[in-house]
Amino acid sequence: LIVDEAINEDNSVVSLSQPKMDELQLFRGDTVLLKGKKRREAVCIVLSDDTCSDEKIRMNRVVRNNLRVRLGDVISIQPCP
């Protein structure tokens, strides 16, 4: 998924579009594992966002710094076991 700027300022939340959440079989409030660069990982709570496009994930600056990614970078997402 492509990293995009978050609207809310919550450090533990990322936003996906509802069709993408359905495709990944995620529900609102699920915890997910995000994988960024240099084997960096972060655990976040996923919320749906109608304004977010299907191929993007919204996260704020703190999460991006933790993953060592910038806007427009590609990250992977998976549900936490």
Score class of each variant (00 low, 15 high):
K35G: 08
S17I: 01
D22A: 07
S12C: 09
L71K: 11
E55R: 12
V32F: 01
N60M: 02
T31N: 11
I57E: 01
R58K: 11
L26C: 03
Q25E: 06
Q25N: 14
R40D: 08
I75G: 00
R28F: 03
V13C: 14
R28T: 14
T51N: 15
D10N: 04
I57W: 01
I77W: 01
V3I: 10
T51P: 04
V69R: 02
D73P: 00
S17Y: 01
K56P: 00
N8E: 13
S17P: 03
I45T: 15
V32L: 06
R68K: 15
N60Y: 01
S17E: 01
N60H: 10
N60V: 03
F27M: 10
L26W: 03
I75Q: 00
V69Q: 02
N65F: 07
V69A: 10
N66P: 00
R61Q: 10
R28L: 13
V69G: 01
C52H: 03
E55T: 10
R39N: 05
M59G: 00
I77N: 00
L26H: 02
I57M: 05
V46T: 06
R58A: 06
V63R: 03
L47V: 11
S15W: 08
P19F: 15
V62T: 14
I45C: 13
K56V: 11
V63K: 03
I77Y: 01
L26P: 01
N65D: 13
N66I: 06
D54S: 09
L16M: 10
D50V: 07
I7N: 05
I75W: 00
P81F: 05
D4Q: 05
Q78Y: 13
P19A: 11
F27K: 11
S17K: 03
K38E: 08
V13N: 04
S48A: 14
V43E: 14
V46H: 02
L24P: 02
C52P: 02
E23N: 07
K20W: 03
P19Y: 15
L33F: 03
G72M: 03
K35W: 06
K37Q: 15
I77Q: 00
R64G: 02
V43M: 15
E41G: 04
E9G: 09
A6I: 12
V43C: 12
S76W: 05
I77V: 14
L26M: 10
L47D: 09
V62K: 12
S17G: 06
T31Y: 06
Q25D: 14
D54A: 08
V32K: 01
I7Y: 04
K35T: 15
V3S: 01
S17Q: 02
M59L: 13
C80T: 10
R70E: 15
D22K: 09
N60W: 00
V32R: 00
I7S: 10
C52R: 05
R70Y: 12
P19Q: 15
N8W: 06
V62R: 11
Q78S: 10
L33M: 13
D22T: 10
V46W: 01
I77L: 13
D54P: 07
P81A: 10
N11D: 04
I77E: 01
N66G: 11
P81I: 05
I45K: 12
G72I: 00
G36I: 02
K37N: 06
V69Y: 01
K37Y: 12
I75R: 01
R68H: 12
D73A: 13
R70C: 15
N66R: 12
L33G: 03
E9H: 07
G36W: 02
E9T: 07
D73H: 06
R28Q: 12
G36E: 05
Q78N: 14
G29A: 05
C44Q: 15
R40E: 09
G72R: 05
T31G: 09
K20Y: 02
G29C: 04
E5L: 07
E5H: 05
V46I: 05
P79Y: 05
A6T: 14
Q18F: 05
P19V: 14
L33Y: 15
K35S: 13
R64C: 05
R39A: 12
R70G: 14
L67C: 05
L67Y: 00
R40V: 13
D4W: 08
V13M: 06
R64A: 11
D49E: 08
P81S: 07
I2C: 06
L34M: 09
Q18N: 02
E41T: 07
D10E: 06
R58E: 03
L16P: 01
G29P: 00
R39T: 13
L16W: 00
K37P: 07
R39D: 13
R39G: 13
V74H: 06
K20E: 02
V13Y: 14
V43D: 08
E41C: 03
L34A: 04
V14Q: 00
V43P: 04
Q18A: 12
E23Q: 07
L1K: 04
L26R: 00
D49P: 01
L33E: 05
Q25W: 04
L24T: 02
S48N: 14
N66H: 03
L67S: 00
E55F: 09
S48D: 06
T31Q: 15
S48Q: 07
E5K: 12
S48K: 12
V43L: 08
C44G: 12
R39Q: 15
K35C: 14
L26I: 08
V62D: 12
L34P: 00
R68A: 13
S48T: 12
T31L: 06
R39C: 14
N65A: 11
S12K: 10
P79N: 11
C52K: 03
D30T: 09
N65K: 10
E55V: 09
V14H: 00
L24R: 02
N11R: 10
E5Q: 07
S53G: 11
L47R: 12
V3N: 00
P19R: 14
V74G: 08
D50K: 07
I2S: 05
S48M: 09
A42L: 09
G29Y: 05
P81G: 03
Q25T: 07
D50M: 13
Q78K: 05
C44D: 02
E23S: 09
V63Y: 02
A42Q: 12
N60D: 08
K20S: 06
C52S: 04
D73S: 12
L33Q: 07
V3W: 00
L47W: 09
V14R: 01
D10R: 06
L1R: 01
I77R: 00
L67P: 01
S12E: 14
V69W: 00
E5P: 06
S17V: 00
R40A: 15
D73I: 02
N60C: 05
A6L: 15
R68Y: 15
A6F: 15
L24A: 02
V43I: 10
R58G: 06
M59V: 06
S15Q: 15
L24D: 01
R28E: 15
Q78R: 09
V46L: 05
L16S: 02
K35I: 13
K35A: 08
N11P: 12
A42I: 04
L71M: 12
S76C: 11
C52M: 11
D49H: 04
E41I: 03
S12Q: 15
I75H: 02
I2W: 04
L71G: 13
D54K: 15
L71I: 14
L16F: 04
D10H: 15
D54C: 08
C44W: 01
I57P: 00
Q25V: 05
S17A: 05
K56N: 15
I7M: 14
E9M: 10
A6D: 09
D22H: 08
E23A: 07
V69C: 15
R39L: 09
D49L: 00
I57K: 00
E9Q: 06
D10Q: 09
L33T: 10
Q25C: 13
D73G: 05
D10S: 06
F27Y: 07
I2Q: 06
I7Q: 05
V69P: 00
E23M: 15
M59Q: 00
M59W: 00
C52V: 09
T51E: 14
L24N: 02
V62F: 11
V62Q: 12
N8I: 10
I2A: 03
T51K: 09
R61A: 14
R70K: 09
V62P: 03
D49R: 02
I77G: 01
N11E: 13
N66V: 07
E55S: 13
N66Y: 05
R40K: 03
L16N: 01
L67F: 03
E23H: 05
T51S: 09
D54N: 09
L1Y: 02
P19C: 05
E5I: 10
K35N: 13
D54M: 12
I57N: 02
S48P: 14
L16C: 08
A42M: 11
V3G: 01
D50N: 07
Q78W: 11
C44Y: 08
K35V: 07
